[in-house]
Design a protein around this nucleic acid. Structure first.
Lengths: 149, 149
DNA sequence: CGAGTTGTTGCAACCAGTTGCAGTAGCGAG
DNA sequence: CTCGCTACTGCAACTGGTTGCAACAACTCG
């Protein structure tokens, strides 16, 4: 939670990571991790539930969400919220990065490292707050939409 | 939506504003606006539904949410998302401002105008994106929580 | 290998919010 | 003041996600 763990999905290490904390390695968790392993970038919770179900139709949503919670605690995924507030899970191999979402045209962009640094600085300097940009999606209006009005 | 309308709640003007757009002024909308008029800062959707119900127990949630949608279109409220992704409505008289939320201790702070300006600049300069900071809550860890580890 | 602990599952109920639709009622025209 | 158009309401069903609880099954220890 404090420093960045290797976010480049070391899915194979999941069982050990769990057991090291006194947690358990179960078939259901394997299903979720298998589904995650096929994802690059982001998935919404519902999407992931769907993927799990397509492999193993008996998958229960609450189990998937609870598994995601423990995977987050272990540092294997991170969750955030899309522009509509819905949950979104970030998985490796990409480093932490946030998103911009235009409310006019609906397009999205990744936040660049230089931009991220500027935001981090704005809050770290003055009040010592370490912003987690990967958690959210910044909304607003993109250049072309602004010019269009 | 483009420029800032007078967000200092001119609730009295609501009926005219609605009619000017071919929309209607109904008892249910009055209930919602009365509830909003007593709010300073933010309300979650559920909270507002509750307030409406306490005055007029027959209030239906979907009506409240739909009313909030039209009030947003008219510029009387703005919606955003709290740290957990739940809806949050910003009402006057405060100017647009975002929030910081510490995931460790759960505390929240308002984003200062200078900090906001830094964020705005970071995206406006390079790519011409106008971030709407009032829409979101930035999460991270505050100074004391960082020092505690 | 068998028993006990306790983390995990499945389920059902629930919360916040959205949507489709038939019936109701604002509001402008006559 | 009445009529008609159509925005709006109420309802019921649904989506995404959470929670409490009893039954279950990983893992540990003997």
């Amino acid at each position: 939670m404090t420093e960045s763990p290797p976010l480049v999905a070391p899915w194979d290490s999941a069982p050990e990571r769990l057991r090291a904390r006194g947690l358990r390695w179960t078939p259901q968790r394997r299903t979720v991790i298998d589904a995650l392993a096929e994802v690059r970038g982001h998935v919404t919770g519902a999407e992931l539930v769907e993927r799990c179900r397509s492999v193993h139709p008996l998958t229960i949503p609450s189990t998937v969400y609870r598994t995601l919670d423990v995977l987050e605690e272990i540092g294997l995924v991170r969750h955030g919220h899309g522009p509509d507030g819905r949950e979104e899970f970030h998985v490796g191999p990409e480093p932490e990065h946030g998103h911009l979402h235009c409310t006019s045209c609906g397009a999205s962009w990744e936040i660049g490292t230089d931009e991220a640094a500027a935001v981090l600085d704005a809050f770290d300097g003055g009040r010592g707050f370490a912003v987690d940009l990967s958690h959210i999606t910044l909304v607003g209006r993109c250049r072309s939409c602004r010019e269009a009005t």
